[in-house]
Amino acid sequence: MEAIILAGGFARRLGPLGDIFPKPLLVVEGDTLISHLVDKLRAIGIEPIITVNKRFEHFFTEFPRVVVEKATREEEKPGALSGLANAISELGIDDDVIVLCADNYFSSDLREFVSSFTGETLVGIYYAGENPDLRPEEMATVRFDGCEKYPPHSRTFYIHDFKEKVSPPLSKYVGTGMYVLPRHTLPILKEYCAGGKRDAPGFFIQHLLERGEKVKGFLITGDWYDISHRSYVRIFREGEITERLEKMVCVSRQVEGFLLTLIILRSGGTMERKSDREELYFVLDGIGEVEVGERKQLIRSRDMMPIPAGVSVRISNRSEKDMLLIRVESLSESR
């Protein structure tokens, strides 16, 4: 069995951040999205192939199996599905293939998912329920026996219908960007993509169902999300880059009477600041050290730090991974 991670996008949904680095390099739960996926595949004995675009290829040099698409901008990209088909043809793959979309995070490992594969196309499915961060009408949704309730009668089930981004959605069960394509479907994929640019892999699942192919779903438990649906990504999508250094990037956006700034500190990066306004820092992810005046302390994910007006603050990333913070500053006149 082979595995291919689709990481060839141009991060348009990241807004200004997408001009700097690709989505798979965002840090969540202590590591980058791409590293989480690679580690989960290595845990089941598979070294994955990663498809990337020409513009961002230098971000992926640490990985041994990388296929570089020729695209340097969105208009040149063949589409995720076509990129997958091209990689399979280029490498001469003739085996079952795990396919993972690199903009997704899930907390569970891959053992149960892969173990449930029985030779039929397999799709990872998640129950969105009433989670406000997950909007089924913006995602792929499925219909299967028992999809009107949670939990389903079994974690594995046959999918009757699968649609990308329809309103109303087919159900509250959504696709997760996790697939296993059986060897016998690869020629079908090649034929399907021969007609031109093909993007979301979910459209190929629709195609298989329309052909009468059997497609199974597997219920993913634990946490799962598409990074584009995280609230901070949505907020700063409309922001602008206000500072860009080798070890630090800042994106700011004014919301009502507040200035919000997303700060990405690279490993070894430091931010120093003294404001005439009160500020509040919230650590989204990572571990670092903060100095406020003469006081030092360790800070980590979900910590908050109020900084009085006129007091110097120095934040340093002491870890090997990026550190993400949000700074909130009131724009009202200081008293």
Score class of each variant (00 low, 15 high):
227 I>V: 11
197 K>N: 06
222 G>N: 02
229 H>R: 08
197 K>L: 11
212 G>P: 07
212 G>R: 11
208 L>Y: 09
186 L>H: 12
195 G>L: 02
215 V>K: 00
194 A>H: 10
229 H>F: 08
189 L>H: 08
188 I>S: 07
187 P>R: 14
183 R>T: 08
203 F>E: 12
188 I>Y: 10
219 L>A: 11
191 E>W: 11
194 A>Y: 05
205 I>L: 10
207 H>I: 07
206 Q>V: 06
185 T>V: 15
224 W>Q: 01
212 G>C: 13
217 G>V: 03
209 L>Y: 07
222 G>E: 01
194 A>I: 06
191 E>S: 15
223 D>P: 00
194 A>L: 13
201 P>D: 09
198 R>P: 06
202 G>P: 03
190 K>L: 08
224 W>L: 00
224 W>T: 01
227 I>Y: 12
218 F>P: 04
199 D>W: 07
227 I>L: 12
202 G>E: 13
194 A>Q: 13
219 L>C: 03
206 Q>C: 08
219 L>E: 01
209 L>R: 09
196 G>Y: 09
202 G>T: 06
223 D>W: 08
205 I>H: 00
183 R>N: 06
223 D>A: 00
186 L>S: 11
221 T>Y: 00
199 D>T: 04
186 L>F: 14
204 F>V: 07
194 A>S: 15
214 K>S: 10
220 I>K: 00
218 F>S: 04
193 C>R: 06
186 L>R: 01
193 C>H: 11
194 A>P: 05
222 G>A: 02
208 L>S: 00
200 A>K: 02
222 G>I: 00
229 H>L: 05
225 Y>Q: 02
205 I>C: 14
212 G>A: 05
211 R>G: 13
213 E>P: 04
